[in-house]
Structure formats: structure tokens, C-alpha cells
Amino acid sequence: MGTQASTSHEKPETSEEARKPRQPILKAHTRKLVIRGMRYAFIIVGALVVLFPIYLMITTSLKPRVLAFAIPPHWTFIPTLGSYQIVLFQANFVRFFFNSLTVALGATLGSVLIAALASYGLVRFQIRGGGVFLALTLILKMIPEVILLVPVFLLWNSLGLINTRIGLILVYVALNLAFNIWIIRAFMMDIPRELEQSAEIDGCPELTIFSRIMLPLVAPGMSVAAIFTFRLAWNEFVLGLALTDRFTRTLPVAVSNYITDVGVQWGPITAIATIIAVPAFLFTFFAARSLISGLTAGAVKG
């Protein structure tokens, strides 16, 4: 955007002249407006590109069956819940939905609680090796699900945890634990030590200091941790595929079966896809700030 150069000076000038804008003020103003307009244009195009696939998914799920495939597409139509009806009355949908919900809530509760305990231990007591532990968690954060696939599959088989919801919950608790410790610890570090010290002098037991004083103060950090754990457990696919059976499978696994089972029923498929995406919509619109702070954590200081 070289055009934005506001004060160009080709000829050698005295320094005093160079500091003054050479164009008339009005012209500079219109140029600014034009540039701002161009920025808006780019941003709006960007937003359209980002939103279009999501828009297409939702509208296709609401189209009557005959229109779902129609090319050229019908941009206007009378929305119907037909596809959702098909999905909801499918024998196992409700079961899969509750599997997903149980697993996601269980994993969130477990992972956030364990992470809060560990963060408190790390922040409040200067433990030898605490730094090493933190570095370790940072590296553990990078372990992809697919690397755990074979060993956890074998381990869960020998422990009897294969095809159980609790088995899946445990894996998800572990997978997001490092991130949660990192986030909650960062929030706890900002809390003045005097607060705990005065409680300690008053004879508060350690667990009470933790649950009554610390936890309420780091609630924003815990909500970031909770959202990201829920997102992981609700969206995860590969481990869900390998570690569950037809009774315990979660929604993402169920929808992938839909493609092969029913061929190309885009109405029901986009309906389930939309249902899976509902938590993502809710988080985005009600907790955008937490999301952004979680996504950029570690990259940007402060």
C-alpha cells in the first residue's frame, strides 16, 4: 500500500519544511477516506469468505429435500426442519448426542479442576523443579491425538476402558491438561500473595484458601480453560473413532459414518454438522474475548 505515503519529498528540503504536510488538508482528508473505504472493502470480502461455508451449511440443513442438491442453488426458500426431523428420529442420534455431552462435560470438569490444583501448587509453593515441570507441560501440549492412538488403544483394552465413555473422558482430560495448567497459572500469578498470606495467618486450611479465595479470583482463567477443553472433547474425532463402539460413539464419529452409510444425504449431514457446530457458535458470540485470549496465549505477552 505505497499509496498511503502521506508526506512524500523527492527534492532535498530544509528539515523544517519536511515536517509540514505539503498537500492541502482537504486532499489528505479525502485520501484518508478512500484508503479507509478500501480497507473496509477488503475486510468485508474477507468476512464473506470466512462466513460463506458456514452460511451454506446452515441453509442447506434448512432446505426442503428436493432443493438441497439443486444447481443453480435456490438462495431463497421456505425453511423446513425436515432434515433435523430425520436426524432426531434416527435410532441412535439422541444416544450419540448424550455421549458427546457427557464426555465433553466430564472432561472439562476433570481437566479444569486438576489443572487448577496443579497451578495452585506451582504458584503458591516454590517447588524445586517447577520450571522443568512447566517446560514439560509445554511440550506435552504438542502431542497429537494420533500418536496416542495405538498405545492408548492397547492400554485401554488391557484395563477394560476400551469402548467406555470414562476411557474417552480420561484421554481428553490428559490432552488439554497442559494448556489448562498454563492458562490458570498465568491468571494465578497476577493475584497478590498478601491475600493468601493473610488468610494463612487467620488459620485458614490450605484447601480453603484454594477453594474459597483462589478459585473465585481466577474464574476468568478457568472459563478460558473450560471452553478450550470442551471444544477439544466435543470436536475430537480420531480417538473417538478408535476408542468407542456403536453404543459409546460421539457425534463427530457418528456423522462420519453417515457419509458411508447413506451415501450423500446432504440434508441430514448438514443438519448434524450444524448441531455439532452449535457450541462453537455459542462460545464465539458469548465468550469471544476468552476465546481470543486463549488462542493468543503464549504468543503475545500481557
Binding site: 468476512a47 462466513l51 458456514i54 470436536n235 454438522a273 481470543i292
Partner: peptide, 30 residues
């Protein structure tokens, strides 16, 4: 806009794959 841009990141990879597969369909893809 910043909020809207978060959406693709939050949506399940399965869903992203399905939607793009739908859009890429040779005969009735958009």
C-alpha cells in the same frame, strides 16, 4: 469482524471437512 473470524477455528474439523466436501462436489458443489 474479529469475533466472526474466530468461528472457523472453533468449528469441529469433521464439520469443516464435510462442508468443504459438499462445496467441492463435482456436480452439485457450489
Amino acid at each position: 469482524f474479529r469475533t466472526l473470524f474466530v468461528l472457523p477455528i472453533m468449528i469441529a474439523p469433521v464439520v469443516v471437512g464435510l462442508v468443504w466436501r459438499f462445496m467441492y462436489h463435482p456436480s452439485y458443489g457450489i
